[in-house]
Amino acid sequence: MADDPREDSKNSRRSPEEAALSARLQRLGERLDQHGPSRQPEAGPSGPRTDPSALARGFRLSTELVAGVLVGAFIGWALDKWLGTSPWGMMVFLLLGFAAGVVNVIRAAGISTGPGSGR
């Protein structure tokens, strides 16, 4: 209770700064509103079905990375067996497969709708 007057005086001392801050916030809000309509269609294309499709996207992520690595490892192994280039095919294609898996995950997460994903 005793602190209250001091707090008030502090607040009154800060008030010019706060006014400036609120003015800046307001300007930011106006600018965001200007950008708003152009952003809106990106944010919610699926409308009411956002929830199941978000969950579905989550399920997708679980296997995308593993699949890429597995395919890379298998192709590397098969090339090594066929051409007798023993560890090299496996090494190169395992890394390429890892990269492909990461690309898969990024696309599945919808962060980048890169080439090939077609979305």
């Binding site: 997708r60 296997t63 995308e64 593993v66 699949a67 890429g68 597995l70 395919v71 890379g72 192709i75 294609f93 390429l96 497969g97 990269a99 492909a100 898996g101 690309v103 898969n104 080439p115 090939g116």
Partner: peptide
């Protein structure tokens, strides 16, 4: 190569 592997990994995932 990465795109090809990504394409081939589809039936697996």
């Amino acid at each position: 190569f990465i795109e090809l592997l990504s394409f081939l990994s589809r039936p697996i995932s």
